[in-house]
């Protein structure tokens, strides 16, 4: 009886991991698109304006070390990714309400970001069934939230000036590199298991 149950569990685990690896490939693909759009946005910035904004730079303390993918379970990495993308989404959707935003480009970026969030959420709902490794992701989410709060505070302190936006866009691009690295790591992990 126990053996039978055990066998079933193993089967389910095997099946779910193969399903996941397919999806992870897709998530990685989509992340590439997100990063591409972000770079396009960045390219819209004029070099002169970037140079002019250099004195406004700030160190936002991207939590690079604390979100090292090696030490976390898949569920936790997913939580970090989701939180980061969700926060980037919130940050950029603020621009939508501002005047004179680069509509078409920001929109494209938000569209890709939104699609990626949908994928991740679908993946996390699957993952939630194996609840074990989503524990402990709260603190990781907190780290990410704090990082983004620093960005929000900075923008506020600079009155959302165009220079502040430029600095933030560059920072977000940096953050997206980290996201991409994490995503790739995740998909590699997913393939192995």
């Amino acid at each position: 009886m126990i053996n039978k149950a055990f066998f079933e569990i193993v089967l389910v685990l095997l099946a779910s991991s193969t399903v996941c690896s397919q999806e992870l490939k897709l998530v990685l693909c989509q992340q590439r698109r997100v990063n591409q759009e972000s770079l396009k946005l960045l390219n819209k910035l004029q070099t002169s304006s970037v140079q002019q904004c250099l004195p406004h730079r700030k160190h936002f303390l991207l939590p690079q070390k604390s979100v090292n993918p090696h030490q976390y379970q898949k569920g936790q990495v997913l939580a970090i990714l989701h939180e980061m993308l969700q926060q980037i989404f919130s940050l950029f959707r603020a621009i939508v309400s501002l005047d004179g935003w680069e509509e078409s480009h920001t929109e494209k970026f938000l569209v890709e970001l939104h699609q990626q969030l949908e994928y991740l959420e679908a993946l996390m709902r699957l993952q939630a069934k194996q609840k074990s490794d989503t524990l402990g992701s709260e603190n990781l989410r907190l780290q990410v939230k704090m990082y983004f709060q620093r960005i929000h505070d900075y923008l506020e302190s600079q009155d959302y000036s165009s220079c502040a936006w430029t600095i933030v866009q560059v920072e977000i691009n940096r953050c997206l590199f980290l996201v991409f690295r994490l995503t790739r790591k995740l998909s590699e992990q997913g393939m192995e298991t």
């Binding site: 989404f89 959707r93 939508v96 309400s97 929109e107 938000l110 569209v111 970001l113 939104h114 969030l117």
Partner: peptide
């Protein structure tokens, strides 16, 4: 409507 608008309150 672009679906991402749905996520934005307002």
């Amino acid at each position: 409507l672009r679906a991402f608008f749905k996520k934005i309150p307002g």
